[in-house]
């Protein structure tokens, strides 16, 4: 099975049903999988912080959710993470496709990407970089269980080593 089918399978195993997203090339197969499967409720949002708000509300209402975005979208959400998700103890699941590394062609993406892990570390949000299809299922499954058991958000960074990334065609 492909990395994205495996990823969605583990989400289902852990009853993560609502997916709110701002699209990205690399996560397109994930989004296709979500929209073509009635198990999932998909909500296209206009901004990533809006998507985090939707997932927060849904979880409080009893439905587990994830936000899917790309690296530059992550740069939109530190405020909502630091002032809502973390202090309110909300196990929001964030899935970020990693631009800005390993063959990036856009300098803006490179710089934004460098803000991501230090920001998450500064607010003590757990993040896992997924770069190995052999260990991915285990990591995602256990990290989701930990997030929901401890009421803590978790971030999965999808490395180009896993997804192939976005390739510069000169």
């Amino acid at each position: 099975m492909s990395w994205y089918d495996n990823f969605l399978g583990v989400m289902k195993d852990n009853e993560v049903r609502l997916v709110s997203y701002v699209p990205d090339n690399v996560i397109t197969p994930l989004l296709k999988g979500v929209t073509s499967d009635n198990y999932f409720m998909s909500v296209g949002a206009t901004r990533e912080d809006e998507a985090v708000g939707i997932v927060t509300g849904a979880w409080m209402g009893g439905v587990r959710g994830a936000v899917m975005m790309q690296t530059s979208g992550f740069a939109v959400i530190p405020n909502v993470l630091a002032s809502l998700v973390v202090p309110s103890q909300v196990p929001a699941v964030l899935v970020v496709s990693e631009r800005g590394a390993l063959g990036e062609f856009n300098i803006g993406q490179v710089l934004v990407s460098r803000t991501m892990r230090p920001t998450l570390d500064a607010i003590a949000v757990t993040h896992h970089t997924l770069d190995n299809p052999d260990t991915m299922n285990f990591v995602v499954d256990r990290a989701l269980k930990q997030a929901f058991a401890t009421l803590s958000p978790v971030v999965f960074i999808l490395s180009p080593l896993l997804t192939g990334g976005k390739v510069f065609k000169a």
Binding site: L18, A51, G53, G57, M60
Partner: peptide, 13 residues
């Protein structure tokens, strides 16, 4: 983010 939170609750319930 008020309205997005409310939307999330509305979708879940």
């Amino acid at each position: 983010i008020t309205v997005p939170i409310a939307l999330g609750v509305a979708l879940a319930q």
